[in-house]
């Protein structure tokens, strides 16, 4: 499998006003065409930083090392013009709040056709015709009418579909979805998940799906990277999340979540001592399958010997 994106040993430090904070601490992962890679973790784990680094959206003051290769090209070496082309033509981005992505005073049509008109230099009429098709593709009924409407006339779920349509309009090869379903009702969330999965499969996109919801990542993604304090502590095939996870942090997260199937006398919680142990436990990579990098595969072997500190 040829990888679309290869991130290797990425270290990022951000200045928080007082000191340098290591936001990413040696992160390596890959994304192949047609594959959804889930990033899960709690606030501050670095999952958004990792994805923003790929889009080179980190603050100018950020410093670090490592490599990011997109289709074999060195993303960190891109000059202005190359970077602008990379972002506008090869990346699609979807964030948590669709209302923050769209301009409230222009129509949905202006928003969805913007990439087509500006990046693809498509004439207005052709761009609107294409936008109609795209809205249909993401399951919006009466697309022509919707294009003429303003964002406030669409529900949150509908607007998020329009954002996805706009993200797909330039035929990107890599989709970055950061908590793209978090603000939505569960039934709407399932719909957006279905749309992202269909787009990934049908267009051969590589999709990075960031979420704090383990169950969602397990249900939707092909592979999962579990992040903790700037590191990927475990990579595994999504269908193995339940039963196959081995890193103590992944296991602790899985246990702390209440279940729809039973009421527990008390939910297991994570102690300060647990948190120390999460840091010293070796990272776990899927045993040689699913595109784990060589360096992670070797730490996976090390993890076989219980408690071996790095």
């Amino acid at each position: 499998m040829t990888e679309l994106l290869e991130v290797e040993d990425l270290v990022v430090e951000l200045f928080d006003g007082a000191e340098w904070v290591r936001a990413l601490d040696g992160v390596s992962f890959t994304v192949a065409p047609g594959e959804i890679v889930g990033f899960i973790g709690e606030s501050g784990s670095g999952k958004s930083t990792a994805v923003n680094a790929v889009a080179r959206l980190l603050p100018a003051s950020a410093r670090g090392s490592g490599s990011i290769r997109f289709d074999g090209r060195d993303v960190l070496a891109f000059r202005q013009r190359e970077l602008a082309r990379f972002r506008s033509e090869e990346l699609g981005m979807v964030f948590q709040d669709p209302r923050a992505s769209v301009n409230p005073v222009t129509t949905v049509g202006e928003y969805v056709t913007e990439g087509l008109r500006k990046t693809k230099r498509m004439p207005r009429a052709a761009a609107y015709a294409r936008a109609e098709q795209l809205l249909g593709e993401v399951g919006i009924a009466e697309p022509a009418q919707r294009l003429a409407e303003y964002p406030h006339q669409l529900s949150g779920g509908m607007l998020q579909r329009a954002v996805i349509a706009a993200a797909l309009s330039t035929d990107p090869r890599l989709m970055l979805a950061d908590e793209a379903t978090t603000a939505l009702d569960v039934t709407r969330q399932a719909e957006i998940a279905a749309i992202l999965r269909a787009a990934t499969r049908e267009r051969g996109l590589g999709t990075i799906f960031i979420t704090h919801d383990l169950e969602l990542a397990g249900a939707l993604c092909d592979r999962i990277c579990v992040m903790y304090r700037g590191r990927i502590v475990e990579q595994l095939p999504a269908e193995e999340l339940h039963g196959g996870a081995r890193h103590p942090y992944t296991l602790a997260l899985l246990r702390s979540r209440p279940s729809i199937e039973e009421r527990m006398p008390r939910l297991p919680t994570i102690t300060a001592a647990d948190r120390e142990a999460f840091l010293t436990a070796p990272a776990v990579a899927a045993g040689g399958v699913g595109g784990a990098s060589a360096s992670e595969a070797s730490t996976s072997e090390a993890s076989a010997s219980e408690g071996g500190a790095r």
């Binding site: 399951g139 569960v186 039934t187 969330q189 399932a190 719909e191 998940a193 279905a194 999965r197 269909a198 919801d213 169950e215 969602l216 397990g218 249900a219 939707l220 999504a238 269908e239 339940h242 729809i260």
Partner: peptide, 25 residues
């Protein structure tokens, strides 16, 4: 039932399941 089944679960991985679920309503 629909509310409950919309909760992400391993059933989403079964072929056509997610599509079936999201076609309703």
């Amino acid at each position: 039932r629909r509310l409950r089944d919309s909760i992400p679960s391993r059933h989403w991985r079964e072929p056509g399941m997610l599509e079936e679920l999201t076609r309703v309503g």
